[in-house]
């Protein structure tokens, strides 16, 4: 692979490794590696392969944690009982680890299992989606919308041709119908729209710079009054 002039060198390395393995979809931990190395904040996370490792790692990152199955044969982790949130202590880690494995064994008996992603659980807040899509006609684009039902039910999303500037990203954020949810609706505190805009810019640059990426999605990205955190990422490559 030709060395490229990009500020996303570490992200590119992760993607090249996945390409070399012949896969098109990054594992959740790999996708998080790409996001983190691009300068977007993530919670502490690590991929573990044994219960023992899980105990050690969760103790050092602190509770509560989230456990997520990592398998090339599982696309929708929650549908097969592959995700547990609110794991509060070591005992629960052990019990839930076993349960996830058991669920997988029952529902997808032949699944290849890479391990379990343990992730520090973040406090609840407003969830948004930031995505990058390489369009067949127009090339790299960036998408923004509020998370959950706002996207699914109301299709309240906005697209731009990537890359975008911070000003354009702010315009995108203000353009969605649900903007007031971010901007301190009914006396709630205004969320960190500036940092959210910078994240939109980063994703737009990531998909513009790295031609190998077909789709990248932070879903959800948590938006706080100070800062944003990506707790799940999905990346598809060519």
């Amino acid at each position: 692979m030709v060395a490229k002039d990009t500020k996303f060198k570490d992200a590119l390395k992760v993607i090249e490794n996945v390409q070399a393995s012949g896969r098109k979809i990054l594992f959740p931990d790999e996708a998080m590696d790409v996001i983190k190395s691009s300068g977007i904040s993530t919670p502490a996370y690590t991929l573990v392969k044994t219960v023992h490792e899980a105990s050690v790692e969760t103790k050092s990152m602190g509770f509560p944690v989230v456990l997520k199955i990592v398998s090339p044969d599982v696309l929708h982790k929650s549908d097969v009982g592959g995700v547990v949130i609110g794991v509060e202590n070591e005992k629960e880690v052990e019990r839930n680890y076993a349960e996830i494995m058991n669920n997988l064994f029952k529902k997808v008996p032949d699944a290849d299992i890479m391990g379990i992603l343990v992730e520090k659980q973040m406090p609840k807040t407003t969830e948004v989606i930031v995505g990058g899509i390489r369009d067949e006609q127009f090339g790299p684009t960036v998408m923004f919308g509020l998370g959950g039902i706002f996207v699914e039910l109301f299709k309240d999303v906005v697209f731009r041709i990537a890359p975008v500037t911070e000003t354009e990203a702010l315009e995108m954020i203000k353009e969605i119908k649900g903007y007031s949810v971010l901007n301190g609706y009914r006396g709630a505190e205004r969320l960190d729209i500036q940092q959210l805009a910078r994240t939109v810019v980063t994703i737009s640059e990531l998909i513009s710079d790295i031609g190998e990426i077909k789709e990248v999605e932070l879903n959800p990205l948590l938006v706080y009054t100070e800062g944003v955190t990506a707790i799940d990422a999905r990346i598809i490559i060519k």
Partner: peptide, 15 residues
């Protein structure tokens, strides 16, 4: 000809 996603056309017009 294949048309593609309308939202992206909107983005392109704007750009």
């Amino acid at each position: 000809a294949i048309a593609g996603r309308y939202e992206i056309y909107k983005a392109a017009f704007r750009k």
